[in-house]
Amino acid sequence: MDLHLTNKLALITGSTKGIGKAIAIEMAREGTNVIINGRRQTDVERVVNEIKSMFPDTNPQGAAIDIADEESRDKLFKQFPAVDILVNNMGIFEPMEYWDIDDATWERFFRVNVLAGNALAKFYMPKMLTQDFGRVIFIASEEAIMPSGEMPQYSMTKTMNLSLAKSLSKLTVATHVTVNTIMPGSTLTEGVQKMLEDMYGGTDIPEAAWEADFMKNHRSRSQIQRLIRPEEVGRFTAFVASPDASSFSGEALRVDGGLVPTIF
């Protein structure tokens, strides 16, 4: 299926691994010229080279920049003054007890998970509106609408993503620019793999059974009873980023495996 993304320029933040990397790969598969972002130059170059090898007709580029830092963002804006697609994927998460979360931690999660993406949207959206095409996508989580209580500082920021995207969508009325949020459920990223190792590494449960046990005992409401794979989120994001996804904006789109038990 041709999503008409050939030669579009897409910035995917936090794209050296996990969901972000999967999004970049799936968009490059559709002919998109992707900008790989991460804090380490070596990681960025590795993924750029990998994508160029996989999809030689595209022109992947790197942006080894900490987008949570205002000074570094200015460098990004000079290097890439305009993009067709912005995927605000970069974020941090960590299970924490509410009582242990100090104000500095609340502020750090807000700065990284909300303010960084907002700054990018504020910079790139006016140019999208001028050219009358653009996509802004926030990658949130089912935690945005169904907080588990395992990491309240993270859930708060993901709910903010939904509100911010809805507000920004109001600025695009009667244009071909859309702003949406995608909410993946529990996904088998490198971080989640490490979490499973920490949870089960010292138990008698064999590694092959870790995923099933985790879903049964910690994500029992999931209808698919497995962890979502990053490429599944990547394929869906590529569609939402495409010109074909022109009939919705301001939406909170769920890719959670049926984990959220409500219709709305």
Rank of each mutant, 00 (worst) to 15 (best):
E207C: 04
L86H: 11
I263F: 10
A119W: 00
M1L: 13
Q61I: 00
G258K: 06
A238V: 01
L120G: 09
F236H: 06
M90Y: 01
P261A: 13
N89G: 02
A208L: 11
E30F: 03
P60F: 05
S163E: 08
V136N: 01
M183P: 01
E70T: 15
G91A: 15
L259E: 05
T58K: 02
E251A: 15
G31F: 11
M195A: 15
S246M: 08
G38N: 10
R73W: 06
K194H: 13
R111M: 09
D84V: 07
F133K: 08
I12G: 02
S167D: 09
A22C: 08
K8H: 13
T262G: 04
M27K: 02
F55V: 04
L259V: 02
T175G: 04
E70G: 06
M54Y: 04
M128H: 10
R40D: 14
R135P: 02
R29L: 10
R29Q: 12
F236K: 03
R111E: 15
I145N: 03
P243C: 07
T189Q: 05
R40I: 10
E50F: 01
F93Y: 14
D244P: 00
A64L: 04
L259G: 12
D198P: 00
D198Q: 14
L76G: 09
F80W: 03
L188C: 03
M54D: 11
N161P: 00
L188I: 10
K127Q: 14
A140G: 09
K75L: 15
I51Q: 01
D74Y: 05
D57G: 02
S186Q: 09
G20E: 04
V47H: 01
R229F: 11
A24L: 08
E207T: 13
F109W: 05
T172V: 12
S249E: 10
G14K: 02
D256S: 08
T157E: 03
S155Y: 02
K216H: 13
F55I: 04
L164F: 10
E45A: 07
K17G: 06
I67V: 14
S246H: 09
E231K: 07
T175W: 02
S169T: 07
V173S: 06
P243I: 10
G257D: 07
M199P: 01
A212G: 09
K216W: 04
E190I: 09
V260S: 02
Q41A: 11
D213A: 14
T159L: 05
D43Q: 13
I228C: 12
A10R: 00
G18K: 03
A140P: 01
K194Q: 15
V47Y: 01
P147H: 05
I263W: 09
E70Y: 14
Q153P: 00
W210K: 11
R29P: 00
